[in-house]
Amino acid sequence: MSAPGPATPEAPFKPSQPPVIEGFLPTVYSNPEGFKEKFIRKTRENPMVPIGCLGTAAALTYGLYCFHRGHSQRSQLMMRTRIAAQGFTVAAILLGLAASAMKSRS
């Protein structure tokens, strides 16, 4: 068997720059969106999720306040309301996923 010849490097390795891979673009998005733009876009796509999150947070906050003040019946009611709001939020997320899956198929 013959020994393989010396490998000829095509380009020297530069650690300060990303490697060049044929057919691969390092940035998929031409205009990357920030947190605010993404939040607004996602809220417009499915407005029920933020409403459910706010309802959950409000019920939890008020329930903890009532617990601290010693109103145990109202605190229990608010904790049950929080569970309902969480269920609403999960249902909104699932319906939003189903709607986007149906939209992508069309």
Rank of each mutant, 00 (worst) to 15 (best):
G5T: 08
G52T: 03
V20G: 03
L60M: 10
S30K: 11
P18N: 00
A101T: 13
R74I: 15
S2G: 13
A98P: 00
G70L: 01
R41W: 05
Y29E: 11
K14M: 09
A85M: 10
A11P: 03
F67Y: 12
E33H: 07
G70N: 00
L97A: 13
L94A: 09
S72N: 15
R80T: 09
T8G: 07
P32Y: 03
Q73V: 07
I40W: 07
G52S: 02
L95G: 08
L60S: 08
A59D: 03
K103Q: 09
M79G: 09
Y65E: 00
G23V: 01
R82H: 06
E37I: 06
P19L: 03
P50V: 00
I51R: 03
G23A: 03
L77S: 04
L94S: 07
T89W: 02
M1A: 15
G34Y: 01
G87S: 11
R44E: 15
M1S: 15
P9S: 04
H71S: 10
L95K: 11
P18H: 02
Q86W: 05
R44L: 15
S30A: 09
F67Q: 06
S106K: 10
G55D: 12
N31Y: 09
Y65D: 00
P9W: 05
I51P: 00
C66Y: 02
Q86F: 09
T8K: 10
Q76C: 06
V49Q: 00
A85F: 08
K38N: 10
F39R: 07
C53T: 14
G34R: 04
A101C: 08
S30Q: 07
C53G: 08
G23N: 01
A84P: 02
E22P: 06
P32F: 02
R41F: 06
P47L: 01
A99T: 08
T8N: 11
C66A: 14
L77Q: 07
Y62C: 07
C66I: 01
K38W: 04
A7L: 11
R41N: 06
P32E: 03
R74D: 12
S75L: 00
G96D: 02
A57M: 07
P15T: 00
